[in-house]
Write a protein that binds this DNA or RNA. Structure first.
Length: 415
RNA sequence: CGGAGUGUGGUAUAAUGGUAUUACGCACGCUUCGGGUGCGUGUAACCCGGGUUCGAUUCCCGGCACUCCGACCA
């Protein structure tokens, strides 16, 4: 896309109403717009990043058999009363509203109840299991305090998957397959090395631990205790001698680390399916309980984590897998040649942001650094004279000269 | 929800009991053209309500908003 047509512009000043690095940089670079505390709009560049993350999550969920659907944001009260989660004393961060008739509604903060209710219409045989469904949808939570930009919002994008199994054994298999898919997601996002499966509280309805996926970072809200040799961690919230024994972990091997939760998976047993009266018939025609798991990944939070973690003093640094564009093409007073290069990139299927604006070189360089696109290609007088373009990775200080005719293939094959 | 702090053009800021500084941006002109070029002209602001006062952006009270700390975060 031509940058002259992009309505957003980078700002030189840091916004005064943001303290966190992810929000400061994303706003300065024009990726997001702050609507209010904890609520952000995604502008064209930011939306591209969000869509890249969604695509990765979607691919990996599909790869383990997840079926995508989309539930509703508006929730009827009755199904939540059946599981006793409607009352504010049980779940206090609901946004609730009313119909004109006076009927109470909830604004979706999670979807166990409606999902179970919906699948119950179709599922009745042991032959139906196992299966998983997921959605990628905005969630609304009335957090007492929003903070840290995209890391803790009141409206945020989340992937939530729900697995349904005929018994515990089948559930365990599904659960582990999905956990493996989670690690593939984090690996593709560049977070694989610093993201740990972490034992955590299982929620109000189960005695089992849940698994959190915690990415190490100083801006994290959680403290986890990491056993580096095993690559396993324990959330501070369940750190007791009794639990450690249960988990086979040795307290002396644990190191405290700050981390941010980028995923959470739960064993829900049959709590929700039983409460909503959804069950199946086994081979003998006997009625049996469905075993359920649920699996969340905070998509918008991940965008914040990536922005926060990989940025340097010049600005954002996107991993190639989620960058809004692969290449930032800068024209420095050689517009014809740059136009030609832009067309060549487009024809080669290379995602390119083309800075065709009439600005000073320094301004273009500074803004390019701020946006954090993986490759910067400069077409200026030098390129016109030498027949080579300067190609620089955002993560490196030095550039390489590449013959103009080789550019598309050079950039296409680079990882 | 408890505590602290902050609200001034689009953005970032200064000062002030007598309508407001500077920079960036934006518009126009000149200049410059590989790391935010230089100059000129112009554009654009005191969160809301109440009180004190001849007069409030400034002081006081209340509200709202934002940030941070804490609590909270199936």
């Amino acid at each position: 896309m031509r940058q002259s047509q992009l309505f957003t512009k980078a700002r030189r000043e840091t916004p005064k109403d943001e303290e966190s690095r992810n929000a400061q940089l994303l706003i300065r670079a024009g990726f997001i717009h702050k609507e209010m505390a904890g609520v952000y709009a995604y502008l064209p560049l930011g939306l591209r990043v969000l869509e890249k993350i969604k695509a990765i999550v979607r691919e990996e969920m599909n790869a383990v058999g997840g079926q995508e659907l989309m539930m509703t944001t508006l929730q009827p009260k009755d199904i939540w009363e059946k599981t006793d989660r409607w009352d504010d004393s049980k779940v206090d961060n609901w946004f609730k509203t009313r119909l004109v008739s006076g009927a109470e509604l909830g604004v979706g903060l999670t979807h166990e109840e409606p999902i179970v209710d919906a699948i119950g219409e179709y599922v009745s045989s042991y032959r139906d299991f196992p299966f998983s469904v997921y959605q990628i949808q905005n969630k609304f939570r009335n957090e007492l305090r929003a903070k840290s930009g995209l890391l803790r919002g009141r409206e945020f994008l989340m992937k939530d998957m729900y697995s349904f199994s005929r018994d515990q054994e089948q559930h365990e298999r599904e659960y582990e397959r999905i956990v493996e898919a989670y690690f593939r997601v984090y690996g593709r996002l560049g977070l694989g090395d610093i993201t740990y499966r972490t034992h955590a509280d299982g929620g109000i309805f189960t005695s089992r631990f849940s698994d959190e996926f915690q990415t190490l970072t100083e801006v994290g809200e959680d403290v986890i205790y990491l056993d580096e040799s095993k690559g396993i961690a324990v959330n501070e919230e369940i750190l007791t001698d009794e639990n450690l024994e249960k988990l086979g972990l040795d307290r002396s091997a644990l190191v405290p680390k700050k981390a941010v939760e980028v995923g959470n998976t739960f064993h829900l047993e049959s709590k929700y399916t039983d409460a909503l009266g959804v069950s199946f018939n086994d081979e003998k025609g006997e009625n049996q309980s469905i075993v359920m798991g649920c699996y969340g990944i905070g998509i918008s939070r991940l965008m914040g984590v990536i922005a926060e973690l990989f940025a340097d003093e010049k600005g954002l640094v996107w991993p190639g897998s989620v960058a809004p564009f692969r290449v930032h093409l800068l024209s420095l007073g050689a517009d014809d040649l740059a136009d030609e290069t832009y067309r060549a990139f487009s024809e080669a299927g290379i995602e390119v942001l083309y800075d065709d604006r009439d600005l000073r070189a320094g301004e273009k360089f500074a803004e390019s650094d701020l946006l954090g696109i993986p490759y910067r290609v400069v077409i200026g007088k030098r390129a016109a004279e030498s027949g080579t373009a300067e190609v620089k990775r955002r993560t490196e200080d030095s550039a390489v000269d590449v013959p103009l005719s080789d550019l598309p293939s050079y950039l296409a094959q680079k990882a």
